[in-house]
Design a protein around this nucleic acid. Structure first.
Length: 524
DNA sequence: CGGCTTTGACCGGCGC
DNA sequence: GCGCCGGTCAAAGCCG
C-alpha cells in the first residue's frame, strides 16, 4: 500500500500504483496485451533509434494478432506491433546476435508461434539495438580519440610557438637594448617596436623567467600565487617606469587590468565554462541595475573575479568585467574565454604601460585582435584600472547558432551545448592564435600571438609535447573540417570572430560565462 | 549538511 | 576630517 511509504511525500498516489498491478494482470491473461506492453516499452527505444522506420511496410504481414489493432501506430513507427514483421527484416541482419544472446529461452518458447515471434522480435530488437549501441560507442570512441589528438596537437603547437616566440623575443630584446642604448629612435621601426613593447610588458620578465610573465606566472606556478598586496602592487605598477621594474608592475597591472565585455542578452544565464560564486552585490551610482560580484571557484586560490551589470540605458545589454588570470586548469569551454581574456588583458597591459607608445601598441593590438572592426574595442587608461572594453552589441549578428531562448553565451563560447560549448570554444583559441600568427607575420606582432598562446596554453603548457607548427594547425583544421559539427562550429567561431566585431576577441574575457540579471549571476 | 545567494556592514580610496 | 563610493566580508537564509 502506498500509505506505508510515508516517506514519499508528493509522488505517486496510491491509485496509480494499484492500477499497475491491474494492468499487469490483464496482460498476464492475454498474451497480446503483454505484447502491447512490451512493444510499447520497446517502442520508445525504437523511436529514439528510429532504426525500424524503414521497416514499417512489412509490418502488416507480421501475423501477430496484435498487429491489426495497432496498425495505426505501426504506421508511424515500426511500432511494437510490427515487430514481428520487423523481426524478419531485422533478423536477417542481426540474427546472429539475437540467437547468441537469447538462444536458450527461445528453444523453449518455440512451440507457440505468436509468443515466439514476439520474443524473437524483442530479442532481435535488443540485439539490433545492442549492435547499434556498440557501433555508436565505437564511433564515439573514435571521435573522442580524434578530439584528444586534436587537443594534443593544439597544445603541442602552442608550446612550440611559445618556444619559438621566446627565442625571437630574446633576440629582439637584445637588439633593442643595444639600440636603446644607442639612443635608437623607435618610430623608425614600428614593426619591431611593437613586438618589443609587448615583450617588455608581458615577456620582458620572460627573458629571465619565461613563464613568469605576471599573469602567466600565476597560471603556471600556482604556488606563486599572489593574492594579497593588490593595492601595494597596484601602486608599484603605477610608479614602475623602468623596464626592469616592470616585472612587478606588470604583475600588479595584470592583476588589475580589466576586460569589459558588452553583450546584448536578455537571458538570465550566461555560461562561460568557469564556475563562479557570487560574493556581493551593489548598486553602483548612476545605474539602477545592481552590480554583481563573482569570484572564480574552480580553484581555491584563483584570483579571477568578474562583475556583471546590466547597462543602465539598455537593460538588454550585459556588461561583464573580468579581472585577473586563472591559476588553474580550465575546461575546454572555459579555455576560450580564459585565453581571450588574458590576451585582452595583456593587450590592455601593453597599452597601459608607462611607455609613450603604450596606447599605440594597444590600438595596434586591438586592430590585430579585431581586424575587422577596431572600433569594437575600447581601451581606457583613465579608469582606476586599465580596462579594455569590447562592445559586442554592435555586431549585426554575433550569434550564428541557434540558441536557447533563456540562455545566452558568446558566439564562440557556449552557444550551443553540443557545438559551441566544446568545439567552437575549443577552436577559438586556435583560430585566434592562428589569426594572430598570420597577422603577426605581417605586422610583427609576434608577442601578441605568443601571449595568446601562452595564456591559452598555460594550463596545458606543462604537458605539451612538441608538435609541428603551422602544419599542425592545418592538420587540425583539416581534421576538424571533416566533421560537420566541427565545421559548423568553426564557421560560427570564425564568423563571429572576424566578421563581427572582433567582439569575440574582446569577449575573451567577459562574455564567457556570465549570468546577469538584476545583478544575479550564476556562473555556469 | 554543504554550497550558494542574499544583504547589510565594513573598509579603503578619493575628492572636497 | 568628512562624506561618497566601490569593493569585499560574513552572517543568515535558502536549496538540493
Amino acid at each position: 500500500m502506498a500509505t506505508p511509504l510515508n516517506s514519499s511525500p508528493p509522488p505517486t498516489p496510491p491509485p496509480s500504483t494499484i492500477q499497475f498491478p491491474v494492468s499487469m494482470s490483464c496482460t498476464s491473461d492475454h498474451d497480446h496485451d503483454d505484447h502491447h506492453v512490451n512493444v510499447n516499452g520497446k517502442r520508445k527505444v525504437i523511436d529514439e533509434m528510429d532504426f525500424f522506420s524503414d521497416k514499417k511496410d512489412f509490418a502488416g504481414s507480421g501475423g501477430s494478432d496484435d498487429g491489426a489493432d495497432e496498425e495505426s501506430r505501426t504506421n508511424h513507427f515500426s511500432g511494437p506491433d510490427n515487430h514481428p514483421v520487423l523481426d524478419f527484416k531485422v533478423n536477417t541482419g542481426l540474427h546472429l546476435l539475437t540467437t547468441a544472446n537469447t538462444g536458450s529461452d527461445e528453444s523453449i518458447v518455440e512451440d507457440r508461434v505468436s509468443p515466439n515471434s514476439e520474443e524473437k522480435q524483442s530479442r532481435n530488437e535488443m540485439a539490433f539495438l545492442q549492435a547499434e549501441m556498440e557501433r555508436m560507442s565505437s564511433e564515439n570512441q573514435r571521435l573522442t580519440d580524434m578530439l584528444n589528438q586534436v587537443t594534443k596537437s593544439y597544445n603541442g603547437l602552442q608550446m612550440h610557438l611559445m618556444t619559438l616566440m621566446q627565442q625571437q623575443q630574446r633576440e629582439a630584446d637584445q637588439r633593442q637594448e643595444a639600440a636603446d642604448q644607442g639612443h635608437k629612435n623607435n618610430n623608425d621601426n614600428n614593426g619591431l617596436l611593437v613586438p618589443r613593447q609587448f615583450m617588455d610588458l608581458g615577456f620582458a620578465s620572460n627573458n629571465e623567467d619565461v613563464s613568469l610573465s605576471p599573469s602567466e606566472g600565476r597560471k603556471l606556478s600556482p604556488e606563486k600565487d599572489v593574492e594579497g598586496g593588490d593595492e601595494a602592487d597596484n601602486k608599484v605598477a603605477k610608479n614602475g617606469h623602468s623596464p626592469r621594474g616592470v616585472d612587478q608592475a606588470t604583475e600588479a597591472t595584470m592583476r588589475k587590468a580589466r576586460v569589459s565585455v558588452r553583450a546584448r542578452s536578455e537571458a538570465q544565464l550566461i555560461t562561460d565554462g568557469c564556475q563562479w560564486r557570487k560574493y556581493g552585490q551593489k548598486i553602483a551610482k548612476g545605474n539602477p541595475c545592481p552590480r554583481a560580484y563573482y569570484r572564480c571557484t574552480m580553484a581555491a586560490s584563483c584570483p579571477v573575479r568578474k562583475q556583471v551589470q546590466r547597462c543602465a540605458d539598455d537593460s538588454t545589454i550585459v556588461i561583464t568585467t573580468y579581472e585577473g588570470n586563472h591559476n588553474h586548469p580550465l575546461p575546454p569551454a572555459a579555455m576560450a574565454m580564459a585565453s581571450t581574456t588574458s590576451s585582452a588583458a595583456r593587450m590592455l597591459l601593453s597599452g597601459s604601460m608607462p611607455s609613450a607608445d603604450g596606447l599605440m601598441n594597444s590600438n595596434l593590438l586591438a586592430r590585430t585582435l579585431l581586424p575587422c572592426n577596431s572600433s569594437m574595442a575600447t581601451i581606457s587608461a583613465s579608469a582606476p584600472f586599465p580596462t579594455i572594453t569590447l562592445d559586442l552589441t554592435q555586431s549585426p549578428n554575433p550569434l550564428q547558432f541557434p540558441r536557447q531562448p533563456n540562455q545566452f553565451s558568446l558566439p564562440f563560447l557556449n552557444t550551443n551545448p553540443n557545438m559551441a560549448g566544446n568545439s567552437a570554444a575549443a577552436l577559438l583559441p586556435q583560430i585566434f592564435g592562428q589569426a594572430l600568427y598570420n597577422q603577426s607575420r605581417f605586422s610583427g606582432l609576434q608577442m601578441s600571438s605568443q601571449e595568446l598562446l601562452d595564456q591559452s596554453g598555460h594550463q596545458v603548457s606543462s604537458q605539451m609535447p612538441n608538435v609541428h607548427q603551422h602544419g599542425q594547425v592545418n592538420e587540425t583544421a583539416n581534421a576538424l573540417a571533416t566533421d560537420p559539427n566541427f565545421t559548423a562550429a568553426l564557421a560560427a567561431a570564425i564568423s563571429s570572430f572576424m566578421s563581427g566585431p572582433s567582439s569575440n576577441n574582446g569577449n575573451t574575457n567577459t562574455t564567457t560565462n556570465n549570468n546577469v540579471n538584476n545583478g544575479n549571476n550564476n556562473s555556469n
